[in-house]
Design a protein around this nucleic acid. Structure first.
Lengths: 239, 239
DNA sequence: TCAATAGTGTCTGTTAGACATTATGGA
DNA sequence: TCCATAATGTCTAACAGACACTATTGA
Protein backbone atom coordinates (compact mmCIF):
# COMPACT_ATOMS: atom_id res chain seq x y z
CA UNK A 1 0.00 0.00 0.00
CA UNK A 2 1.48 3.32 -1.04
CA UNK A 3 1.49 6.07 1.61
CA UNK A 4 0.32 8.46 -1.09
CA UNK A 5 -2.94 6.59 -1.42
CA UNK A 6 -3.54 6.05 2.28
CA UNK A 7 -6.42 7.87 3.95
CA UNK A 8 -5.65 10.18 6.86
CA UNK A 9 -7.03 7.54 9.17
CA UNK A 10 -4.71 4.94 7.73
CA UNK A 11 -1.72 7.24 7.90
CA UNK A 12 -2.42 8.02 11.54
CA UNK A 13 -2.89 4.35 12.38
CA UNK A 14 0.39 3.51 10.70
CA UNK A 15 2.14 6.20 12.70
CA UNK A 16 0.59 5.03 15.94
CA UNK A 17 1.93 1.51 15.48
CA UNK A 18 5.24 1.18 17.29
CA UNK A 19 8.11 2.80 15.40
CA UNK A 20 11.81 3.14 16.23
CA UNK A 21 11.58 6.88 16.75
CA UNK A 22 8.80 6.61 19.32
CA UNK A 23 9.45 8.26 22.69
CA UNK A 24 7.56 7.66 25.90
CA UNK A 25 4.79 10.16 25.36
CA UNK A 26 1.87 10.89 23.08
CA UNK A 27 0.70 14.11 21.43
CA UNK A 28 -3.09 14.47 21.69
CA UNK A 29 -5.11 17.20 20.01
CA UNK A 30 -8.47 18.55 21.16
CA UNK A 31 -10.09 19.94 18.01
CA UNK A 32 -12.87 22.25 19.13
CA UNK A 33 -15.66 23.71 17.04
CA UNK A 34 -19.14 25.12 17.55
CA UNK A 35 -22.02 22.82 16.75
CA UNK A 36 -25.67 23.64 17.44
CA UNK A 37 -24.69 26.41 19.83
CA UNK A 38 -22.41 24.15 21.84
CA UNK A 39 -18.69 23.52 21.98
CA UNK A 40 -17.86 20.18 20.37
CA UNK A 41 -14.66 18.12 20.26
CA UNK A 42 -13.48 15.85 17.47
CA UNK A 43 -13.13 12.17 18.31
CA UNK A 44 -12.00 9.31 16.10
CA UNK A 45 -12.73 5.61 16.32
CA UNK A 46 -10.31 3.81 18.61
CA UNK A 47 -8.26 0.95 17.19
CA UNK A 48 -10.03 -2.32 17.91
CA UNK A 49 -7.49 -4.56 19.54
CA UNK A 50 -7.77 -8.29 18.77
CA UNK A 51 -10.30 -9.92 21.05
CA UNK A 52 -11.87 -6.65 22.08
CA UNK A 53 -15.64 -6.55 22.00
CA UNK A 54 -17.36 -4.71 19.21
CA UNK A 55 -18.92 -1.79 21.07
CA UNK A 56 -17.95 1.47 19.41
CA UNK A 57 -15.06 3.15 21.19
CA UNK A 58 -13.74 6.65 20.67
CA UNK A 59 -10.51 8.48 21.30
CA UNK A 60 -8.95 11.87 20.82
CA UNK A 61 -6.80 12.02 17.71
CA UNK A 62 -3.22 11.43 18.78
CA UNK A 63 0.08 10.01 17.75
CA UNK A 64 3.20 8.93 19.60
CA UNK A 65 5.80 11.62 20.25
CA UNK A 66 9.04 11.56 18.34
CA UNK A 67 12.22 12.31 20.23
CA UNK A 68 13.61 14.85 17.80
CA UNK A 69 10.56 16.74 16.62
CA UNK A 70 8.88 19.91 17.77
CA UNK A 71 5.70 19.15 19.69
CA UNK A 72 3.67 21.65 17.72
CA UNK A 73 4.64 20.03 14.42
CA UNK A 74 3.25 16.71 15.58
CA UNK A 75 0.09 18.39 16.81
CA UNK A 76 -0.39 20.16 13.51
CA UNK A 77 -0.01 16.89 11.63
CA UNK A 78 -2.57 15.21 13.88
CA UNK A 79 -4.97 18.06 13.21
CA UNK A 80 -4.46 17.86 9.48
CA UNK A 81 -5.06 14.12 9.52
CA UNK A 82 -8.47 14.77 11.05
CA UNK A 83 -9.68 17.81 9.13
CA UNK A 84 -7.70 17.59 5.90
CA UNK A 85 -6.27 21.08 6.39
CA UNK A 86 -4.08 22.62 9.04
CA UNK A 87 -5.73 24.36 12.00
CA UNK A 88 -6.10 28.14 12.19
CA UNK A 89 -5.18 28.09 15.86
CA UNK A 90 -3.06 25.62 17.75
CA UNK A 91 -1.75 25.96 21.28
CA UNK A 92 -0.35 23.65 23.88
CA UNK A 93 -2.58 23.01 26.87
CA UNK A 94 -0.15 21.05 29.00
CA UNK A 95 1.20 17.66 29.96
CA UNK A 96 -1.00 15.00 31.48
CA UNK A 97 0.12 11.90 33.32
CA UNK A 98 -0.94 11.13 36.84
CA UNK A 99 -1.44 7.45 36.17
CA UNK A 100 -4.71 7.98 34.31
CA UNK A 101 -5.18 5.54 31.48
CA UNK A 102 -4.59 6.43 27.84
CA UNK A 103 -5.33 4.46 24.64
CA UNK A 104 -1.59 4.31 24.02
CA UNK A 105 0.87 2.92 26.51
CA UNK A 106 2.64 6.25 27.01
CA UNK A 107 2.87 7.34 30.66
CA UNK A 108 2.62 10.97 29.56
CA UNK A 109 0.49 12.87 27.06
CA UNK A 110 0.96 16.41 25.79
CA UNK A 111 -2.38 18.01 24.97
CA UNK A 112 -2.95 20.65 22.31
CA UNK A 113 -6.09 22.56 21.48
CA UNK A 114 -6.97 23.41 17.89
CA UNK A 115 -9.90 25.55 16.77
CA UNK A 116 -12.08 24.66 13.79
CA UNK A 117 -14.46 27.23 12.26
CA UNK A 118 -18.13 26.44 12.73
CA UNK A 119 -19.49 24.62 9.70
CA UNK A 120 -16.19 23.09 8.62
CA UNK A 121 -16.76 19.49 7.56
CA UNK A 122 -14.64 16.57 8.64
CA UNK A 123 -13.65 14.43 5.63
CA UNK A 124 -15.53 11.15 5.58
CA UNK A 125 -12.39 8.99 5.44
CA UNK A 126 -11.28 10.38 8.80
CA UNK A 127 -13.77 8.08 10.45
CA UNK A 128 -14.43 10.60 13.20
CA UNK A 129 -17.11 12.96 14.40
CA UNK A 130 -17.69 16.00 16.60
CA UNK A 131 -19.33 15.45 19.99
CA UNK A 132 -20.67 18.19 22.29
CA UNK A 133 -18.23 18.53 25.19
CA UNK A 134 -21.15 18.26 27.59
CA UNK A 135 -22.26 14.95 26.10
CA UNK A 136 -19.18 12.91 25.31
CA UNK A 137 -19.02 9.15 24.87
CA UNK A 138 -16.89 7.03 27.18
CA UNK A 139 -13.24 8.06 26.95
CA UNK A 140 -9.97 7.22 28.62
CA UNK A 141 -9.78 9.29 31.83
CA UNK A 142 -6.69 11.11 30.72
CA UNK A 143 -8.31 12.18 27.47
CA UNK A 144 -11.38 13.37 29.32
CA UNK A 145 -9.11 15.50 31.50
CA UNK A 146 -7.41 16.90 28.42
CA UNK A 147 -10.71 17.95 26.87
CA UNK A 148 -11.79 19.68 30.07
CA UNK A 149 -8.46 21.48 30.25
CA UNK A 150 -8.63 22.48 26.59
CA UNK A 151 -12.06 24.04 27.07
CA UNK A 152 -10.86 25.88 30.18
CA UNK A 153 -7.80 27.02 28.25
CA UNK A 154 -9.90 28.52 25.49
CA UNK A 155 -12.25 30.17 27.96
CA UNK A 156 -9.34 31.78 29.78
CA UNK A 157 -7.85 33.16 26.58
CA UNK A 158 -11.02 34.45 24.95
CA UNK A 159 -10.38 37.99 26.13
CA UNK A 160 -6.70 38.09 25.22
CA UNK A 161 -6.39 36.09 22.01
CA UNK A 162 -8.63 36.00 18.93
CA UNK A 163 -9.93 32.53 19.74
CA UNK A 164 -13.55 33.46 19.07
CA UNK A 165 -12.74 34.46 15.50
CA UNK A 166 -11.05 31.11 14.87
CA UNK A 167 -14.31 29.41 15.76
CA UNK A 168 -16.31 31.39 13.19
CA UNK A 169 -16.32 31.42 9.38
CA UNK A 170 -14.43 34.25 7.76
CA UNK A 171 -17.57 36.39 7.70
CA UNK A 172 -20.14 36.48 10.46
CA UNK A 173 -22.79 38.69 11.98
CA UNK A 174 -22.21 40.57 15.20
CA UNK A 175 -25.01 38.60 16.82
CA UNK A 176 -23.21 35.36 15.97
CA UNK A 177 -20.01 36.77 17.42
CA UNK A 178 -21.77 37.85 20.60
CA UNK A 179 -23.47 34.49 21.02
CA UNK A 180 -20.09 32.81 20.72
CA UNK A 181 -18.59 35.07 23.37
CA UNK A 182 -21.55 34.32 25.61
CA UNK A 183 -21.01 30.62 25.05
CA UNK A 184 -17.30 30.83 25.86
CA UNK A 185 -17.69 33.16 28.82
CA UNK A 186 -20.84 31.44 30.03
CA UNK A 187 -22.60 34.71 30.78
CA UNK A 188 -24.87 37.12 29.01
CA UNK A 189 -23.42 40.26 27.45
CA UNK A 190 -25.05 43.58 26.82
CA UNK A 191 -25.61 44.10 23.12
CA UNK A 192 -24.90 47.82 22.89
CA UNK A 193 -21.88 47.57 25.18
CA UNK A 194 -20.55 44.61 23.25
CA UNK A 195 -20.68 46.53 19.99
CA UNK A 196 -19.21 49.68 21.51
CA UNK A 197 -16.26 47.66 22.81
CA UNK A 198 -15.83 46.01 19.42
CA UNK A 199 -15.80 49.36 17.69
CA UNK A 200 -13.29 50.77 20.15
CA UNK A 201 -11.02 47.76 19.78
CA UNK A 202 -11.14 48.00 15.97
CA UNK A 203 -10.78 44.28 15.44
CA UNK A 204 -13.65 43.76 12.98
CA UNK A 205 -14.58 45.53 9.79
CA UNK A 206 -17.89 45.44 7.95
CA UNK A 207 -18.29 43.82 4.56
CA UNK A 208 -20.90 45.01 2.09
CA UNK A 209 -22.88 41.81 2.48
CA UNK A 210 -26.01 41.28 4.51
CA UNK A 211 -27.66 38.11 5.64
CA UNK A 212 -31.37 37.62 6.20
CA UNK A 213 -32.10 34.93 8.74
CA UNK A 214 -35.82 34.19 8.80
CA UNK A 215 -37.77 37.12 10.11
CA UNK A 216 -36.34 40.39 11.26
CA UNK A 217 -33.97 42.90 9.80
CA UNK A 218 -31.01 41.38 7.95
CA UNK A 219 -27.65 41.58 9.70
CA UNK A 220 -24.50 43.00 8.19
CA UNK A 221 -21.60 40.59 7.79
CA UNK A 222 -18.26 41.42 9.36
CA UNK A 223 -14.79 39.98 9.11
CA UNK A 224 -11.94 39.74 11.56
CA UNK A 225 -9.50 42.52 10.75
CA UNK A 226 -7.41 43.63 13.73
CA UNK A 227 -5.80 47.01 13.28
CA UNK A 228 -2.65 48.24 14.95
CA UNK A 229 -3.93 49.38 18.28
CA UNK A 230 -1.92 49.50 21.43
CA UNK A 231 -3.84 50.46 24.51
CA UNK A 232 -2.53 49.41 27.89
CA UNK A 233 -5.42 48.00 29.89
CA UNK A 234 -6.63 50.33 32.60
CA UNK A 235 -6.60 49.38 36.24
CA UNK A 236 -5.94 46.04 37.88
CA UNK A 237 -8.26 43.10 38.27
CA UNK A 238 -8.00 41.42 41.65
CA UNK A 239 -9.57 38.04 42.03
CA UNK B 1 25.21 6.29 53.34
CA UNK B 2 21.78 6.38 54.90
CA UNK B 3 19.11 8.25 52.94
CA UNK B 4 18.02 9.77 56.22
CA UNK B 5 21.32 11.57 56.55
CA UNK B 6 21.59 12.66 52.95
CA UNK B 7 21.30 16.34 52.10
CA UNK B 8 18.59 17.50 49.70
CA UNK B 9 21.24 17.89 47.04
CA UNK B 10 22.45 14.35 47.56
CA UNK B 11 18.92 12.98 47.53
CA UNK B 12 18.17 14.76 44.27
CA UNK B 13 21.39 13.59 42.68
CA UNK B 14 20.63 10.03 43.70
CA UNK B 15 17.20 10.30 42.15
CA UNK B 16 18.59 11.76 38.95
CA UNK B 17 20.93 8.82 38.42
CA UNK B 18 19.24 6.29 36.17
CA UNK B 19 16.60 4.25 37.99
CA UNK B 20 14.31 1.46 36.80
CA UNK B 21 11.19 3.62 37.16
CA UNK B 22 12.56 6.38 34.97
CA UNK B 23 10.39 7.41 32.01
CA UNK B 24 11.45 9.41 28.99
CA UNK B 25 10.84 12.86 30.43
CA UNK B 26 12.03 15.17 33.16
CA UNK B 27 10.16 17.35 35.63
CA UNK B 28 11.78 20.78 35.94
CA UNK B 29 10.76 23.44 38.44
CA UNK B 30 11.22 27.19 38.07
CA UNK B 31 11.28 28.53 41.63
CA UNK B 32 10.66 32.26 41.43
CA UNK B 33 11.13 34.84 44.12
CA UNK B 34 11.70 38.58 44.40
CA UNK B 35 15.24 39.72 45.04
CA UNK B 36 16.35 43.35 45.04
CA UNK B 37 13.21 44.42 43.23
CA UNK B 38 13.66 41.85 40.47
CA UNK B 39 12.25 38.43 39.73
CA UNK B 40 14.83 35.74 40.41
CA UNK B 41 14.90 32.02 39.64
CA UNK B 42 16.57 29.27 41.66
CA UNK B 43 19.39 27.37 39.98
CA UNK B 44 21.50 24.53 41.33
CA UNK B 45 24.97 23.39 40.36
CA UNK B 46 24.95 21.00 37.44
CA UNK B 47 26.45 17.55 37.89
CA UNK B 48 30.05 17.59 36.73
CA UNK B 49 30.43 14.74 34.26
CA UNK B 50 33.82 13.00 34.20
CA UNK B 51 36.22 14.83 31.94
CA UNK B 52 34.14 18.01 31.89
CA UNK B 53 36.03 21.23 32.47
CA UNK B 54 35.72 22.91 35.81
CA UNK B 55 33.82 26.06 34.88
CA UNK B 56 30.79 26.48 37.11
CA UNK B 57 27.64 25.26 35.41
CA UNK B 58 24.06 25.73 36.54
CA UNK B 59 20.75 24.04 35.92
CA UNK B 60 17.15 24.27 36.95
CA UNK B 61 16.30 21.83 39.71
CA UNK B 62 14.79 18.75 38.09
CA UNK B 63 14.40 15.04 38.34
CA UNK B 64 13.45 12.29 35.90
CA UNK B 65 9.76 11.59 35.58
CA UNK B 66 8.34 8.40 36.99
CA UNK B 67 5.82 6.48 34.93
CA UNK B 68 3.26 5.97 37.66
CA UNK B 69 3.39 9.22 39.61
CA UNK B 70 1.46 12.45 39.42
CA UNK B 71 3.52 15.20 37.80
CA UNK B 72 2.70 17.69 40.53
CA UNK B 73 3.99 15.32 43.22
CA UNK B 74 7.37 15.14 41.54
CA UNK B 75 7.44 18.91 41.11
CA UNK B 76 6.62 19.44 44.78
CA UNK B 77 9.40 17.09 45.80
CA UNK B 78 11.88 18.94 43.59
CA UNK B 79 10.81 22.21 45.18
CA UNK B 80 11.18 20.83 48.67
CA UNK B 81 14.64 19.53 47.87
CA UNK B 82 15.67 23.06 46.97
CA UNK B 83 13.98 25.13 49.67
CA UNK B 84 13.55 22.62 52.47
CA UNK B 85 9.80 23.23 52.63
CA UNK B 86 7.02 22.73 50.12
CA UNK B 87 6.03 25.63 47.87
CA UNK B 88 3.02 27.84 48.56
CA UNK B 89 2.12 27.88 44.91
CA UNK B 90 2.86 25.31 42.26
CA UNK B 91 1.44 25.17 38.76
CA UNK B 92 2.35 23.44 35.54
CA UNK B 93 3.67 25.69 32.79
CA UNK B 94 3.76 23.16 29.97
CA UNK B 95 5.81 20.56 28.13
CA UNK B 96 9.01 21.48 26.33
CA UNK B 97 10.82 19.42 23.75
CA UNK B 98 11.59 20.71 20.27
CA UNK B 99 15.06 19.21 20.18
CA UNK B 100 16.52 21.81 22.51
CA UNK B 101 19.18 20.38 24.77
CA UNK B 102 18.57 19.50 28.40
CA UNK B 103 21.03 18.46 31.14
CA UNK B 104 19.30 15.09 31.23
CA UNK B 105 18.86 12.90 28.21
CA UNK B 106 15.06 13.14 28.24
CA UNK B 107 13.56 14.28 24.91
CA UNK B 108 10.77 16.01 26.82
CA UNK B 109 10.58 18.18 29.93
CA UNK B 110 7.53 19.23 31.90
CA UNK B 111 8.02 22.64 33.49
CA UNK B 112 6.42 23.82 36.72
CA UNK B 113 6.56 27.21 38.34
CA UNK B 114 6.75 27.56 42.12
CA UNK B 115 6.61 30.81 44.06
CA UNK B 116 8.87 31.53 47.01
CA UNK B 117 8.14 34.44 49.38
CA UNK B 118 10.66 37.26 49.25
CA UNK B 119 13.30 36.84 51.93
CA UNK B 120 13.01 33.06 52.21
CA UNK B 121 16.46 31.55 52.49
CA UNK B 122 17.68 28.59 50.50
CA UNK B 123 19.35 26.03 52.80
CA UNK B 124 23.13 26.01 52.34
CA UNK B 125 23.32 22.29 51.58
CA UNK B 126 21.16 22.77 48.52
CA UNK B 127 24.16 24.13 46.72
CA UNK B 128 22.04 26.54 44.73
CA UNK B 129 21.28 30.23 44.45
CA UNK B 130 18.75 32.70 43.08
CA UNK B 131 19.63 34.59 39.90
CA UNK B 132 17.73 37.57 38.47
CA UNK B 133 15.81 36.34 35.44
CA UNK B 134 17.25 39.21 33.41
CA UNK B 135 20.81 38.20 34.25
CA UNK B 136 21.03 34.42 34.16
CA UNK B 137 24.18 32.36 33.72
CA UNK B 138 24.58 30.03 30.73
CA UNK B 139 21.82 27.43 30.72
CA UNK B 140 20.61 24.61 28.51
CA UNK B 141 18.36 26.20 25.84
CA UNK B 142 15.35 24.20 26.93
CA UNK B 143 15.70 25.38 30.50
CA UNK B 144 16.07 28.97 29.38
CA UNK B 145 12.82 28.57 27.48
CA UNK B 146 11.13 27.13 30.55
CA UNK B 147 12.18 30.08 32.71
CA UNK B 148 10.87 32.54 30.14
CA UNK B 149 7.58 30.67 29.95
CA UNK B 150 7.30 30.48 33.73
CA UNK B 151 7.71 34.23 34.05
CA UNK B 152 5.15 34.83 31.32
CA UNK B 153 2.83 32.37 33.03
CA UNK B 154 3.01 34.24 36.32
CA UNK B 155 2.52 37.58 34.60
CA UNK B 156 -0.57 36.34 32.84
CA UNK B 157 -2.12 35.03 36.05
CA UNK B 158 -1.34 37.95 38.30
CA UNK B 159 -4.81 39.42 37.87
CA UNK B 160 -6.69 36.17 38.31
CA UNK B 161 -4.79 34.19 40.93
CA UNK B 162 -3.14 35.34 44.17
CA UNK B 163 0.36 34.91 42.77
CA UNK B 164 1.56 38.27 44.11
CA UNK B 165 0.75 37.27 47.67
CA UNK B 166 2.77 34.07 47.28
CA UNK B 167 5.80 36.18 46.46
CA UNK B 168 5.50 38.24 49.65
CA UNK B 169 5.97 37.38 53.32
CA UNK B 170 2.80 36.77 55.31
CA UNK B 171 2.65 40.45 56.26
CA UNK B 172 3.57 43.28 53.96
CA UNK B 173 2.91 46.95 53.35
CA UNK B 174 0.59 48.13 50.61
CA UNK B 175 3.51 49.91 48.96
CA UNK B 176 5.41 46.62 48.79
CA UNK B 177 2.35 44.96 47.29
CA UNK B 178 1.95 47.70 44.71
CA UNK B 179 5.63 47.59 43.77
CA UNK B 180 5.31 43.87 43.21
CA UNK B 181 2.28 44.31 40.98
CA UNK B 182 4.16 46.95 39.04
CA UNK B 183 7.09 44.56 38.66
CA UNK B 184 4.87 41.74 37.43
CA UNK B 185 2.70 43.87 35.15
CA UNK B 186 5.65 45.97 34.00
CA UNK B 187 3.72 49.21 34.29
CA UNK B 188 3.11 51.91 36.86
CA UNK B 189 -0.08 51.85 38.88
CA UNK B 190 -1.95 54.70 40.48
CA UNK B 191 -1.62 54.60 44.25
CA UNK B 192 -5.10 55.73 45.23
CA UNK B 193 -6.77 53.60 42.56
CA UNK B 194 -4.72 50.58 43.57
CA UNK B 195 -5.85 50.87 47.17
CA UNK B 196 -9.46 51.52 46.25
CA UNK B 197 -9.48 48.36 44.12
CA UNK B 198 -7.86 46.40 46.93
CA UNK B 199 -10.47 47.60 49.37
CA UNK B 200 -13.30 46.74 47.00
CA UNK B 201 -11.89 43.27 46.36
CA UNK B 202 -11.53 42.63 50.11
CA UNK B 203 -8.53 40.37 49.72
CA UNK B 204 -6.27 41.96 52.33
CA UNK B 205 -6.88 42.86 55.96
CA UNK B 206 -4.82 45.18 58.17
CA UNK B 207 -2.82 43.91 61.11
CA UNK B 208 -2.13 46.12 64.12
CA UNK B 209 1.53 46.30 63.25
CA UNK B 210 3.38 49.15 61.59
CA UNK B 211 6.78 49.26 60.03
CA UNK B 212 9.10 52.24 59.85
CA UNK B 213 11.40 52.12 56.87
CA UNK B 214 13.99 54.86 57.16
CA UNK B 215 12.39 58.26 56.76
CA UNK B 216 8.74 58.95 56.27
CA UNK B 217 5.57 57.88 57.95
CA UNK B 218 5.50 54.21 59.02
CA UNK B 219 3.35 51.89 56.92
CA UNK B 220 0.67 49.60 58.26
CA UNK B 221 1.23 45.89 57.68
CA UNK B 222 -1.44 43.86 55.91
CA UNK B 223 -1.98 40.18 55.38
CA UNK B 224 -3.61 38.25 52.55
CA UNK B 225 -7.12 37.37 53.66
CA UNK B 226 -9.53 36.83 50.77
CA UNK B 227 -13.18 37.03 51.77
CA UNK B 228 -16.06 35.35 50.04
CA UNK B 229 -16.76 37.73 47.25
CA UNK B 230 -18.27 36.76 43.98
CA UNK B 231 -18.45 39.54 41.46
CA UNK B 232 -18.64 38.66 37.80
CA UNK B 233 -16.20 40.85 35.89
CA UNK B 234 -17.89 43.57 33.95
CA UNK B 235 -17.61 43.90 30.20
CA UNK B 236 -15.33 42.12 27.77
CA UNK B 237 -11.71 42.77 27.03
CA UNK B 238 -10.86 42.51 23.36
CA UNK B 239 -7.25 42.30 22.43
C1' DT C 1 12.58 72.79 60.33
C1' DC C 2 12.69 69.98 56.15
C1' DA C 3 12.41 65.81 53.51
C1' DA C 4 10.30 61.62 52.58
C1' DT C 5 6.84 58.36 52.60
C1' DA C 6 1.92 56.75 53.99
C1' DG C 7 -2.70 57.40 53.45
C1' DT C 8 -7.03 59.84 51.89
C1' DG C 9 -10.62 63.18 49.88
C1' DT C 10 -12.32 65.31 45.68
C1' DC C 11 -12.90 66.04 40.87
C1' DT C 12 -13.22 64.50 36.08
C1' DG C 13 -13.23 61.64 31.97
C1' DT C 14 -14.31 56.98 30.43
C1' DT C 15 -17.15 53.14 30.10
C1' DA C 16 -20.52 49.29 31.21
C1' DG C 17 -25.20 48.50 31.52
C1' DA C 18 -30.21 49.97 31.32
C1' DC C 19 -33.55 51.68 28.47
C1' DA C 20 -35.71 53.43 24.60
C1' DT C 21 -36.10 54.20 19.78
C1' DT C 22 -35.53 53.65 14.92
C1' DA C 23 -34.62 50.49 10.83
C1' DT C 24 -35.83 46.77 7.94
C1' DG C 25 -36.97 42.65 6.59
C1' DG C 26 -40.56 38.26 6.61
C1' DA C 27 -45.06 36.29 7.74
C1' DT D 1 -50.49 45.00 9.24
C1' DC D 2 -47.75 42.79 12.91
C1' DC D 3 -43.66 40.70 14.58
C1' DA D 4 -38.90 39.75 15.07
C1' DT D 5 -34.38 41.07 14.81
C1' DA D 6 -30.65 44.66 13.79
C1' DA D 7 -28.61 48.79 15.00
C1' DT D 8 -28.08 52.96 17.61
C1' DG D 9 -28.85 57.16 20.74
C1' DT D 10 -29.28 58.69 25.63
C1' DC D 11 -28.90 58.41 30.50
C1' DT D 12 -26.73 56.83 34.79
C1' DA D 13 -23.76 54.49 38.00
C1' DA D 14 -19.24 52.74 38.60
C1' DC D 15 -14.59 53.39 38.30
C1' DA D 16 -9.76 54.74 36.85
C1' DG D 17 -6.62 58.35 37.05
C1' DA D 18 -5.17 63.21 38.31
C1' DC D 19 -4.40 66.21 41.89
C1' DA D 20 -4.11 67.97 46.25
C1' DC D 21 -3.98 67.50 50.85
C1' DT D 22 -3.12 65.67 55.59
C1' DA D 23 -0.37 62.46 58.71
C1' DT D 24 3.75 60.86 60.70
C1' DT D 25 8.17 59.68 60.97
C1' DG D 26 13.73 60.51 60.64
C1' DA D 27 17.38 63.66 59.62
Amino acid sequence: MSPLLASPRQRAATRRSASPRTAGYSVDVVLLTVLDGQLAAALVRAEGRPGERLRERWTLPWEPGAADEALADAAERVSRDVMGVGPHYLEQVGAFGDGKRHPGTAPLSVAFVALVPAGAVMPADTGGDFFPVNDLPALAPRQRAMIDAAVAHVQQRVGHAPVAFRLLPTTFTLSELQELYELLLDRRLHKASFRRSLQAARIVEPTDEWRSEGRGRPAQLFRYAPRRRRSAPRGIRFE
